[in-house]
């Protein structure tokens, strides 16, 4: 089985699938060929927006214009304007940097914590494995949103807090997957053979186990970023994330909510961009996953 058979949920942990419940058809389904392509294209545009937003939007995302508040989408304002007369298109473009960097940072935190725990459990002694596994079981008792909120309650709201909170919320899932992966690789005939050949433990770990076990992290990371963006925007939406007037997508949604009766575009467009980002990372992640699957079982 692959570790990512289970659907990645945007807001929550991996399903607890007992062995009997593995759905065998996972590999059979094919994405339409254009899917990954479109996803790649969309993500490429996002990357441009992150690195050089001025290439995509000429204006300033913070420029207010009281003569042009709440204008509907038009040629002058592709996505309309908001309650301060700011151009929503420009804000969405510049918001990519805010939202993606939060998503990336949160994923990095989650993966880092997950790796520490997962590797310790997978490579350490049986005793360490037991302790970590038990600890993870306890952490899984908390739905991720609650874990994140608990952290925010302890350390207060704000972007840094939000990144760590989302990271902590996702870490147990990563840790369990990494542990499983390490153990799976550790027990392959290939590593077994290396052991029989008398290779040192260190060499086996660094040359064989780690590279093979880490490869799926690319997939996890890709899938995780989309997930983390949705997460972070949810916390921003609750007023616990980015402060105004930052063009973070979740914060834009939160601010636009009160104006929905007079300006639907404030709600529809940033939300659609979040959904597209999440879809694109999922599509790309699964595409990479299929590419890796063949190699991993060697």
């Amino acid at each position: 089985m692959t570790l990512l058979d289970a659907p990645i949920t945007p807001l929550d942990e991996q399903p607890h699938l007992p062995p009997g419940a593995v759905h065998v058809g996972a590999r059979r389904r094919r994405w339409p060929g254009v899917g990954p392509l479109l996803a790649g294209l969309f993500l490429a545009i996002l990357v441009v927006a992150v690195i050089r937003p001025s290439l995509l939007a000429h204006g300033n995302p913070l420029t207010v214009d009281q003569a042009a508040t709440l204008l509907p989408p038009s040629i002058h304002h592709l996505f309309g304007t908001d309650q301060n007369g700011r151009d929503v298109y420009t804000r969405v473009v510049y918001g990519a940097r805010e939202s993606l960097s939060i998503g990336l940072a949160a994923t990095a935190v989650g993966l880092a914590l997950g790796m520490i725990l997962g590797l310790a459990a997978g490579l350490g002694s049986k005793w360490i494995d037991t302790v970590v596994s038990r600890f993870l079981e306890v952490m899984f008792a908390f739905p991720s949103m609650l874990l994140a909120l608990l952290f925010v309650a302890m350390f207060g709201a704000g972007v840094t807090s939000l990144i760590i909170a989302v990271g902590i919320g996702t870490a147990p899932g990563y840790a369990r997957m990494i542990r499983g992966q390490v153990i799976a690789v550790r027990d392959t005939p290939y590593v077994e053979a290396a052991r029989v050949l008398g290779h040192s433990r260190k060499r086996i770990v660094f040359r064989h186990v780690l590279p093979n076990a880490m490869r799926p992290l690319v997939v996890l990371g890709t899938l995780g970023v989309g997930q983390a963006i949705v997460w972070a925007s949810a916390l921003s939406f609750l007023g616990l994330g980015a402060a105004p007037p930052a063009p973070e997508w979740g914060a834009m949604l939160a601010a636009g909510r009160d104006y929905i009766s007079v300006a639907w575009w404030l709600e529809l467009i940033p939300g659609a961009v979040i959904v597209l980002t999440s879809l694109a990372t999922t599509a790309l992640g699964r595409h990479i996953q299929r590419g890796i699957e063949g190699r991993i079982s060697t």
């Binding site: 913070l62 207010v64 301060n84 105004p244 007037p245 601010a255 909510r257 009160d258």
Partner: peptide
């Protein structure tokens, strides 16, 4: 702080900048 207040503060922020 209703959303209108926040809009007002954001306008003032932009003007001060």
């Amino acid at each position: 702080t209703p959303s209108e207040d926040l809009t007002l503060y954001e306008d003032i922020q932009a003007a001060e900048e």
